[in-house]
């Protein structure tokens, strides 16, 4: 099977702190990582490749620095990598990003043949929108399953286990199709020294606006229907009453009484 995984380089949002003086994000020193949900998507794809054979291509849109993310993917199962990068793409919202990526995917397919399954992480941990995957599927007119935790493939179709509000659903669809992946029960594989070295040597092809058929008016900040009006740090609620007692049990009894008195329960 020919598999494609879309990845994004993101700041590690668990490392982000707020500057108490200026009330802004402290970005300095925050490491850039491959979006964790994309690493799950790559692992799900790698398991299909282990099982059925085939190849995995990874694609990312971002500045030159995002090559590092692609190199990392090449060390853990990806065979080929493309970076979609152009100044006119800067400031794209999800609709513009998915438009550009779908154009890039068509350009790669023109060279390498069509992909059977396109994988994306459920969402990126910086934007948290969960929109780019389904929007790529729409641009390419593909069926989709979102929130998948497991995917098995056979010739011409796949079955995805989808997380939903009550549990799971097993959903079958024909290829070509698109799947977004949330946290599975297994961890992504780690690179070996050999695979890491090979990944460092591998070439990453760059795709610019000139390499694909695009309407530039639908790209970048100008081509984005949504505009950020302002950003601010959330107001932090002040802490309340600290219950002190001789031991945990006494504190528990006291808390029960307070909640009843306050008519909370």
């Amino acid at each position: 099977m020919k598999l494609l995984v879309c990845v994004k380089q993101v700041p590690d949002t668990t490392e982000i702190r707020i500057d108490p003086e200026t009330n802004t994000l402290i970005r300095a020193g925050v490491p850039s990582i491959v979006n964790p949900f994309d690493t799950y998507a790559l692992e799900v794809a790698a398991r299909i490749k282990d099982e059925c054979g085939g190849s995995i291509t990874v694609i990312s849109m971002g500045p030159q620095q995002a090559k590092n993310a692609l190199t990392e993917c090449l060390g853990v199962g990806a065979d080929k990598a493309y970076l979609v990068s152009d100044r006119v793409f800067g400031g794209s919202d999800t609709l513009a990003t998915s438009y550009i990526l779908s154009g890039a995917i068509r350009a790669v397919e023109a060279k390498e043949g069509p992909f059977d399954v396109i994988f994306c992480g459920k969402q990126a941990i910086d934007g948290d929108t969960a929109q780019v995957g389904p929007e790529i599927a729409e641009h390419l007119d593909l069926p989709q399953v979102t929130y998948a935790v497991e995917v098995t493939a056979k010739e011409g179709s796949i079955v995805a286990k989808r997380e939903n509000d009550d549990g799971y659903a097993l959903i079958e669809m024909q290829t070509p199709c698109l799947v977004t992946v949330t946290k599975p029960a297994f961890d992504p594989r780690v690179p070996t020294i050999k695979s890491k070295l090979a990944a460092k040597k591998a070439e990453i092809a760059i795709i610019t606006s000139e390499d694909m058929e695009l309407d530039i008016s639908r790209c970048g900040l100008k081509g984005s229907p949504t505009k950020v009006k302002k950003t601010f740090t959330p107001q932090v609620k002040k802490g309340g009453l600290r219950i002190v007692a001789e031991d945990g049990a006494a504190a528990g009894v006291k808390l029960a009484g307070l909640l009843v008195d306050a008519k909370v329960i």
């Binding site: 932090v236 600290r242 945990g248 049990a249 504190a251 528990g252 009894v253 808390l255 029960a256 909640l259």
Partner: peptide, 23 residues
Amino acid sequence: FNIADYSIVGDLFQVLPAMTAEI
């Protein structure tokens, strides 16, 4: 604790059974 209205710094396994019984 920064956002809690009621806080207990303590051992869950003492607090929870006592609280449950009292409720």
